[in-house]
Amino acid sequence: MSIQTLIAEEQPEHFAFDKASEKEIKKAISKYPEGRQASAVKSLLYIAQKQNDNWIPVKAIEEIAKRLDMAEMRVLEVASFYSMFNLKPVGKYYLQACGTTPCMLRGSDDVMRCIKDKLDISSGETSACGKFSLLEVECLGACVNAPILQVNDDFYEDLDYQATKDLLEALEADSPPDVGSVMGRQGSEAEGGATTLKAAKRSGKKK
């Protein structure tokens, strides 16, 4: 991946952290001893990405380098190492589809196919409408409810072709459905409902 394909061609002229970000930056840096502030580089990259519609412009990398007293190259290295950092703009809904073995066995190929059918994008691409971007990722750590599609910060679980389609349509209408298992299971309880601790009271669904 050359630098040209890695980072966005069109870059904003300026980047400045907003107030909320500044607060988080302070917290992130304070976690590390004096002189070790460079350890906060991932946190700062994450904060920048969060503030800037899910991607990190070059100016933000340079700003972070300045704040942490690091070489710009070192920050770019970190930012390019993790697939979780975007160096190019992504759609409003950033889809990360897991393709690792458990998800694959449970039908992640169908999820991918649905995304392709509906939005005509493959991994690394943004849809024509500009609203969706897709990245195929490795295990998201939620294999029990495989297959998983992460939309921005939220997980949608137990997907199949139809459920993915419904999800995408809801997102298109900007009314995201409840997060979690689309089958409605709680946490990672067995399909068809709990088999033990039945007497325990269910806590309400998240969100």
Partner: peptide
């Protein structure tokens, strides 16, 4: 980085995608 003291060279990406380049 160490001898010349100009940390402009680095490795971007990871795994099979690693590439050596100067900053931008």
């Amino acid at each position: 980085t160490e001898v010349a003291g100009v940390a402009d060279l680095g490795a971007i990406g990871r795994g099979e995608g690693v590439e050596i380049t100067t900053y931008l």
